[in-house]
């Protein structure tokens, strides 16, 4: 479904959409890094290795983060659609 909607766009718009996707991925990944490191890593550094429990925590933290990111994304898309409809009504 993504590709078919992409075909209708101009070259410039496709590049802009791709740039936006990269920005979105970068932002998401950076938040994942910061969030899960803050939640799972001890700040009392005794050596440079991840402990077993830190590793397990990071994996679970990532799984929960992806899940919640998706849920919020769906909610936002619903709200965005509603707002776009409102905007197009206002412009008429």
């Amino acid at each position: 479904t993504t590709h078919s909607s992409m075909d209708a766009l101009s070259s410039k718009q496709r590049i802009m959409a791709q740039e936006a996707e990269l920005d979105a991925l970068t932002g998401m990944f950076n938040n994942l890094l910061t969030g899960c490191q803050n939640k799972c890593l001890s700040t009392n550094h005794h050596d440079g290795e991840l402990t077993k429990s830190e590793s397990v925590c990071l994996d679970r933290c990532a799984a929960k983060y992806f899940d919640i990111h998706e849920r919020i994304g769906e909610k936002l898309q619903d709200m965005q659609k509603a707002q776009m409809q409102m905007n197009s009504t206002m412009q008429q």
Partner: peptide, 14 residues
């Protein structure tokens, strides 16, 4: 929109 999305996820996740 991207910042809102990522910021909101970060806030509520935290």
């Amino acid at each position: 929109f991207i910042e809102l999305y990522n910021g909101l996820t970060k806030r509520c996740f935290d």
